[in-house]
Design a protein around this nucleic acid. Structure first.
Lengths: 210, 210
DNA sequence: CCTCGATTTATTATCGATATCCAATCGAGG
DNA sequence: CCTCGATTGGATATCGATAATAAATCGAGG
C-alpha cells in the first residue's frame, strides 16, 4: 500500500487531518514533518502540495502551511453539491454497469464491513470513498471524479468534526447494500432513491428531523 | 507577477493547456519541460503536481504525465455545476458586498476590457476567472472557491477547444457590466438573473438556440 | 519466424545542501 | 515611551546529483 515516502506522508497527513488529530489552524512546517514522518523535506513538500489540492491545508508561501478551517455552512453546501453530483452520475451510470463493475463494488462493500468489524474507523471511511467513487466512475464523467472525491473527503471531515453525526461503523457499512442491490437490478430510479436517502441521512439537519 | 520558477512554470503550462497549445494526450516529461522552461526538475515537478490538482494533467507514476482529455458531456456537466455554485454563492454574497468589494470587482472588469483591447485572449480569461472568483468570495463559502476555480478553468478550456463558442474579446469583457451593476444596486434577484444569463449564453447549446 | 529473457535506456522519485525570503526581535534615536 | 531601521532566526524555495523503476530493445533459443 505504501509505495514510497511521499505516498505515505500524504496518506498519514490526510488521515490525521480528516480524523481531526490535526485541528484547523495548526501550523505545519515541512522540515518538522520530515522529522516526524522520517522522510526528506521534498517528500513532505509533495505531500503538502497534494493536500492543498484536496483543500485540507493552505500553503501561504514562506509563512508556512496551516490546516484549513471548517464551517457548518460550507459543509452543508458541499454536501448538497456532492448529492447533486452523485445523483446525476448514478442516473447516467446505472445502465452501463456490467457484472464486473458490480462485483468490484461488492468487494469494496465487503472490505468496508470487514474494516467496521475490526473497529477501524479510518479504513471504513477510505472504503466508503472508494465505493462512492467507483460507483460514480460508471457515469463516464471522468473529469468530475476528483471534484466528487474532494466533496466526499470534506463530508467525512465535517462528520468527524461534529461528533453528533457519528454512527456505529457496522451500520455505515450496511447502509450501502440497498444501493448496490438497486444497481444490480438495473433500476436507475431505485438507485437514485437509495443514494439520495443515504446522503440525506448522512448528516442530522437540526432537531426537526426527529 | 512571476514570483519564482515554479510559479512561472505553473502559469505557462496552464496557459498552454487551456489555450490548447498542448493537446489532450500529450506526454510531458519533467526533465524535458525543465529544459524548455529553463528551470530545475523540482520546479517542473511542483508545477505538474499543482496542475494535476486542477485536473489539467494526469500523473501516472513512472509512466509519465499526460495532458487530460476533454469531452463535451463532462464539459456540459461541469458548466451546470459551475452555474449552480455561482448562483447559490451570489444569493448569499449579494447582501454582504461592501463598497470596497465592488470597487475591486470593477477594477478587475476594467483590466479585462483593457486586455480585450490589447487582443490578449489569455489575459481576458485570467481576469474573467479573477472576477468570478472574487464575486463568489463574497459568499463566505471559503472552502468552495477552489472547486469553482476548477470548474471555471475547465469551462474556459472547453470553450477554446470547441472554437464555435468563441466570441469577440470586447464583448466578453462587457458582458460582466450588468452583473456588477446588479450587485452594486444590492439587488440579489437581479444579480442571480444576470449571472444565470451570462452563464447560459456562455456555450451554444446546439443549433436550436439560433 | 516467434517467444522469452537479459540489458539498456529514459524517466520519475528521493535526498541533502544551499539560496532566498519574510517576520519577529532588538537596539538606537527622537 | 514610542517609532523606525538593521539584524537575526526560521522557514520555504530551488537546485544538482543519485537511486530506483518500468518500458523498450535487442539477442539467443526453440
Amino acid at each position: 500500500m505504501a509505495e514510497g515516502p511521499a505516498s505515505r506522508a500524504v496518506a498519514e497527513l490526510r488521515r490525521r487531518i480528516v480524523m481531526n488529530e490535526l485541528t484547523p489552524g495548526t501550523l505545519l512546517t515541512e522540515l518538522g514533518l520530515a522529522g516526524d514522518l522520517a522522510c526528506s523535506q521534498a517528500a513532505v513538500r509533495e505531500a503538502l502540495l497534494r493536500l492543498e489540492g484536496e483543500g485540507l491545508v493552505l500553503r501561504s508561501g514562506r509563512q508556512g502551511t496551516t490546516v484549513t478551517d471548517l464551517d457548518a455552512d460550507t459543509a452543508a453546501e458541499i454536501l448538497d453539491l456532492r448529492r447533486r453530483i452523485e445523483l446525476r452520475g448514478a442516473r447516467r451510470g446505472a445502465r452501463r454497469a456490467g457484472a464486473g463493475d458490480i462485483l468490484a463494488l461488492r468487494r469494496i462493500q465487503a472490505a468496508m464491513e470487514q474494516a467496521a468489524a475490526a473497529g477501524d474507523a479510518w479504513a471504513v471511511l477510505e472504503r466508503d470513498m472508494d465505493l462512492h467513487l467507483a460507483l460514480f466512475r460508471l457515469s463516464g464523467l471522468h473529469a468530475m471524479g476528483p471534484i466528487l472525491a474532494r466533496c466526499i473527503l470534506h463530508t467525512h471531515r465535517f462528520r468527524l468534526w461534529a461528533p453528533w453525526h457519528r454512527r456505529p461503523l457496522g451500520e455505515t457499512a450496511r447502509r450501502h447494500v440497498p444501493i448496490l442491490e438497486a444497481l444490480e437490478a438495473g433500476d436507475a430510479a431505485a438507485l437514485a432513491r437509495e443514494l439520495a436517502g443515504h446522503l440525506d441521512t448522512m448528516v442530522d439537519r437540526g432537531v426537526a428531523a426527529a
